[in-house]
Structure formats: C-alpha cells, structure tokens
Design a protein around this nucleic acid. Structure first.
Lengths: 338, 338
DNA sequence: CGTCCATCCTAAAGCGCATTAGTAACTAAT
DNA sequence: ATTAGTTACTAATGCGCTTTAGGATGGACG
C-alpha cells in the first residue's frame, strides 16, 4: 500500500479510502489508485486486515467424525462444494477441520474464537442435547446450524434445515399406498437431531394410519451396521415388508444382505434409501431414494452465514423437502403385507 | 498479552519471550508468565502473529474438480483426515478450497500467496504438463505434491508418492498368473500423472510378458463412464478376460454393466479395482482391489510439509506400494484366455 | 576499586492495514 | 470581509504480537 501511495502520489490513507470505497477521495483519485493497485498486483494482507478489526475473512467448518467413519459419503463433499461456491464470490476462506467428537469440536471453536481465526462457523450434525449452540452463543460467534430443527432457544443462530418430517411422511405415505404395513427404519446415529426427528415422524405417521409394527433401529451409518440390522430384522418371525435406510451406504449393504437371506427386492421386501447418489444406481435393483440437492444446501447455508456476518438477523430457512425418486427397489407389498 | 504482563508484573516483551521459549527471561519468570497466561485463557492472535512475520499458521489445500464430480469418493476425505491429524498437533489450520480446474487453482495459490494466507500448500492430482510446480516455485510457496512422480526439475518441492508402477506390475503379474492375456485398463483422467504412469506401466509389463492385447481407456472416473467403457469393450469381437478399473466407483458400475451383458464375474471376466473401500464389499461378488492407507498417505504428506516449513530440505517420500487384496472378482481366465 | 561480561529485563519500533483527528483549499452564506 | 460549511486530502494512532536495541544489576577478574 505504501508503494501504491507513492506511485499514485497520495497518502496511504487516501489509498485505503479509495480501495475500500470509503468517502473522502475524489472519483478521479479513486480511479487512479485502483489502476495503480491493479498494476502492482496488490492484494490486502488478511493478517493486517484482521488485526485492524476487519475480521479474518474466513469461516470455519468442523466435521466431528472418527477417521474411519469418513467412508463413502458424498454428502459432505457436495455440501462443502456448495458452501465454497458462495464463499468464493467474496474471497472468504474456509477453514476446515476433522475431529473425533463434539467435545473436540467445541475445543476447536474456542480456539478459533480466541485466535480470531474465523468470523463465523457452519455447524453440521446437530444433536438432541447439543452443547454447541450454547457455546457459540456464549462466544458470540456467528453460526449457521445445518440440518437442525428451528431452535427458538438460540435466537442468535441461523438454521438451514430440510424437512425430514415431511419427507418421512411422504415415504410412509407411498409405502402404505403400496400395501406395506410392517416397516423397519434403519436409522442413523442415535444422538443426531434429524435421526430423532425421522424416528418420531415415522412413529406418528404409522400411528395415524393404524400401521402396527414400525421400528427404528439406530446405527453408525456404516455398511456393516446396515447389513447386520437387515439380517436381524429379516430373520425375525414376522419380517417387515419395507425397509427405510437413513443413508445410501446402508441401503446398498442391506440389499446385499437381504439377497443372501433369500429375500428378493422388491418382490419380498421394498427398500428406500435416504440420500440419493450414484451408489443407488450402481446396484441391482436400482434403489428408490430420497433425493435432495446437497450442493444447493451448502449454498444456502453459506448465504445465510454471510448475511449474518453482514449484521443481518438470524433466520431459519427451509430447503426443499427431499423428494422420493421411485426406482426399482420399491413395489407392492407381498401377500397384502398383513 | 498486555494483561498478562500487568498481572505478572513484567513487560510485554518478557511475556513474549517467556511464552515463545526465547532466551532472555529466568525460568522462574517464565513459569509465572505461563501460569498467568493459562489462567487468563490467553491464545495468540494468529493475525498479529502473521503480521509480525511469523507466518499464517495455515496450510492450503485445493481440490480442482467440477462440483458434480465430487461424488462417491472416499479417498480425499480420508486424505484430508490424515493431513489434519498431523496439522492439529501443531495447531495449524487447513484452508480448503474446491475449484473448477487447474487454472482456477493457480489463481487461488496466487491469491493466498499475495494475501499471506497460507505458509504452504498441498497439491493433489499432479498432471503431465502441470503449471503448478512452476508457479509455486516462482511464488516461493512451500509445497508438497501428493501422488506425483519424483520431479528433479523442481528441487524446492517435496513429493509424496505411491508406486503406481509397482502396483500395476503386481496386478499384471497376478492376472497373467491366472491365465489372462487380454486385459483392458479403464483408466482415470487423461491428464493426470498417475494415470499416465499406470498406462505406461501396463503397456511395458504386457510387452515384457508377450501379452497381446492390452488397452487403456481414459475416463472421468464416473460410474457412467465406467459402465459405458465396460459395455464397449465387452461387446467387441474379442472381449478381454480381465478389467482393471482406476477407481472403485467405476469398478462397481462396470461389474453391473458386465452382468447386464451376460458376463459373469469372475467366471467370464475378472475385475480389479484400484482403490479399496467399503464399496468393494458392498457388491456381489466382492471386488478384488488395490488397497492403500489413504489416511496414512495424508499424514505423510502433512509431515513433509511441516518439515519444509521448518526450513528442512525438500524430500521425495514413497509410501508403501498398494497391495492387491484378492476377493471374489478375480479368477482363472476362461478357456485359457487365449 | 574499576572493568568486562552475563543475565534478566524494559523500551520502542515495526508488521500492513483501517480509522480518527486534523489541515488546507475552496464555496456559500451572512 | 468574516464565518461556517464542504470537499479532498494527510498525519498519526492503534490492532497484538515479535524483535532489536538498549539499560540495570551483579559477579568474576585483573
């Protein structure tokens, strides 16, 4: 900046005013300064900017997952990709960290906050008794919770969520229409907010329709868990005629497990995967799946965070309800399903 | 820090010396300062540190992939996870960015450099005529190239690589032993260095053994491409008896495509996937695959980068050769394979 | 007893930017 | 012609830290 000032024949402050669109310099000077800056390939030092109170031009994203669990999961990469798209427009950086659990995640937030490393964070995998919103409130760190339910207890946090309840209802609706009466839900991690929301909704919808046996089994999202639970429920005395899996990986593993037990899909048992991906079209039969646009989800979340950073109010935004794509793994229930 | 100085009854400089392990303060004072800092929950402001010449305490990682391509790929997430593990020990941040292509990637490096945002970068997917090493050399940005071949033209860059040539040789070896003579390699992206290395090695190994027909077809790593190429080569007059896929996704899609054409695996055609993952055990038959430890790969790369940041010399490190895990998709060639 | 050197510490400068207070020139109002 | 107001700029300060250049004290040594 000193160089620019010299080349343009003005003071450093004038340069600062000119480049930041602040009043106090003539349009003519502003243009000249801009040109010189361009020529010299100047870019503001984020460190200096941050130090003089402008914020770090960075947002944080923590993924709390044991390293081994980071398997075949397209969701997060797509989410991040969408986030980036929006952040890049403003040249905001994304500080990314993978940790073991939520406690570590909180520690990371504290550190980032103390070190003034980030201006805000994106929180994923909200839980039922989640310490993170409280912490972020306490730290005053702007944050967007991705995938949480609207939360009135933390008016400072924005929320971007998909309507799992509506999606689950549509699945139950369709399965009921196809004659299914015994549905088992192979759910995700027990603590997660959306897992519990799906479980509650399934129960409610089943009750509303007078379906007898619905069951939700929580898992760790792994293919192994998907296969194991599938075997267990299909070997029970009165096996279900429909299985709803909370992710694509478990659904695929489940179909394989069912086949081994002599169950054919969809003749003997229908399968729905929550989360559509290439995976769903890589197995036979192609899996019916709940599809949503994860990239767009990320875009929305990032947009909300930027609004928050600009001083806007916290908001709760709902992305479109995941839509059930019917492929070949769902069909009319065997023997009336009763 | 001012607070600490006041509480401890010393000057700010003394505090700085004490906390950074610099000489110039007594052990007693050092301890006292440390205690006070602890009590006050002090953490250095990275911005201030960076501004006074200490570096940004951050390394960069750019993934040049169109958003849609970010599908079912466990490799990168695992790699990043390994990287993090090492960086976290030193409280180094990871600035992550997804861009469309290499040109954009270069632009990101330039920006990060100009903004003093990162102390070094990790480069993935090296290409055959890659502009990045030159750029990084020019900028003087410490960098580790992940997955490249040793490169004497850029003595400033460290390289961490897996021996694709050795791995490919072992695959050809095994397939040859099983009686296969016609092998098709469904390769990855044409420009990538490791793609070309694998193609060259396949050709060389085939020639060495007098195998006639080997072919490598480059793709975009997608399931669609995997299926399409598989159909094409299997419908040819003299179809191959063995298929080597450059990733797990294409292999799975390929097996499905083969089945549709009436080819049974491994009776009619053997399949090897380059990259082992849960996916390989989610289809029938389980896929034989080249397995490597991607998390460890990430750890190694991060370790090398830190060595570079500490002023160490650039090095070339080879991680263990991927090992062929034989499962159920490989077998003796049909009708002698000839 | 004075000199020299360590040791332990302080004062002050500087990193690159934003910002506030201040100045000079010029215009409009009294 | 004096004052107030406006515009276009400059000087100077501070953000939180590191680092360099001293300053004070005390012990060893001639």
């Amino acid at each position: 900046m000193k160089d620019i000032a010299r080349h343009a024949g003005v003071s450093q402050s004038a340069v600062s005013f000119a480049l930041n669109g602040r009043p106090g310099v003539s349009e003519e000077t502003r243009d000249r300064v801009r040109r010189v800056a361009e020529e010299l390939g100047w870019r503001p030092s984020t460190a200096a900017r941050a130090l003089s109170g402008e914020g770090a031009a960075t947002v944080g994203f923590v993924l709390a997952r044991p390293a081994e669990t980071l398997g075949v999961d397209s969701f997060f990469l797509q989410l991040v990709s969408g986030i980036q798209e929006v952040l890049a427009e403003r040249h905001l950086g994304l500080l990314f960290q993978v940790v073991e659990d939520v406690a570590d995640e909180c520690a990371v937030y504290r550190r980032w906050w103390a070190e003034h490393r980030v201006d805000g964070v994106l929180v994923v995998d909200p839980r039922s008794a989640d310490p993170r919103p409280d912490l972020l409130d306490e730290l005053g760190l702007p944050a967007v919770v991705i995938g949480g339910a609207p939360d009135e207890r933390h008016p400072g946090l924005s929320t971007v969520w998909a309507d799992d309840a509506g999606a689950m209802a549509s699945v139950v609706d369709e399965l009921h229409r196809l004659g299914h009466r015994r549905i088992v839900h192979i759910a995700g991690l027990a603590g997660l907010a959306h897992t519990e929301r799906r479980i509650r909704t399934l129960r409610a919808e089943a009750a509303r329709r007078g379906l007898g046996e619905v069951e939700s089994v929580t898992t760790d999202y792994s293919d192994a868990a998907g296969a194991a639970v599938t075997r267990r429920v299909l070997e029970a005395p009165a096996p279900p005629t429909a299985l709803v899996y909370d992710n694509d990986v478990m659904a695929v593993a489940g179909v394989a497990a069912a086949a081994e037990l002599g169950f054919s899909v969809p003749a003997d048992v229908s399968v729905v995967a929550w989360e559509d991906s290439a995976l769903c079209r890589m197995v036979k039969p192609w899996l019916s799946a709940l599809s949503r646009d994860s990239v767009e989800f990320g875009r929305t979340a990032a947009t909300e965070l930027m609004a928050l950073l600009d001083g806007g109010p916290a908001r709760t935004v709902r992305v479109p309800v995941p839509r059930l794509i019917e492929r070949d793994s769902t069909g009319v229930a065997r023997s009336g399903g009763a």
